[in-house]
Amino acid sequence: MKKIKQKILESKYVYVVLSLLFMMIISSLLSPSFLTLSNLITILRQASILLMLSLGLTAVVITGNIDLSVGSCAALTGCICAKMLVADVPVIAAMLISISIGLIIGVVNGFLVGVIKLPSFVATYGMNMVASGLAMIVMNGGVIYGLPAKFTTIGIGYVGSVPIPIIISGVMCLIVYILLQKTTFGRNVYMIGFNIQAAGYSAINCLGTLLAAYAFCGVTGALGGTMMTARLNAADAGMSETYGLQIVAAVVMGGTSLLGGEGGVVGTVIGAIILTIIVNIMNIVGVNSNWQNFAVGIVIILMVWIDIYTRSRRAKKLI
């Protein structure tokens, strides 16, 4: 019993779960309508898109790198998808093409980081510029709306009483969880994050793993982008702007360390939900939307600080 108790306390997720509970209590105190079933489902549905966007990033962050281009990758692929749909391209084809564009963006990121050896934040920050610029070119300054119902179902439909985006993200989470925790690929992702040099000396295919992680990040970015477009039933070049920072925040909030090697999907799920609650409650209370970015900025810095601080304390304990 004592052992279990200790194990729970030592687990990193304790703090993540506790902060989720804390957020929920605060929120229900601030607004009586927070704890209604419909609001909770709304939160989950909003969180599902953010979650999808953060899934691939989780893998990239575990390798000890970062991808700052996920947001604009989502916008670009969402816009391309919408553009194709209004041009009567079949839904499946449009989605597949969008996803492959996400894949390409991811591979290019991986190439810049793994082969050219640019620091990942510089390379992907540049890619962020490129992708959002391309989205602007695709949309030519306009907005597309009125998409086929077959497509928008994935954003606004239900199976029984469960919204479809929650199902899609849920399934994807499960896949990523298995991929990261239960496969040789996932193991190598973690090993690279722990120590990429040692991984190289252990004959692990570092470049391939890194490319795959980035490619995967591009794919989830694209999936998130199409889901976002379906949800909004519209697309414009700036549609993912509010998500840009939240994606990174969701990952670090979930306890995945920027130093690499630690964290996982479970944390990201909770992180995405917490962030959505923060934004949701600010909307309910009626705070100026500019404060939201302010808050997310502070959350990021705070979470990274907590991570590094607790880590150095744990390291000291060892000595």
């Binding site: 973690y190 090993m191 722990f194 120590n195 040099q197 040692a198 000396y201 090697g261 630690e262």
Partner: peptide, 8 residues
Amino acid sequence: QLGLAVRA
């Protein structure tokens, strides 16, 4: 640095 991933 090279032999082990000490955090793993």
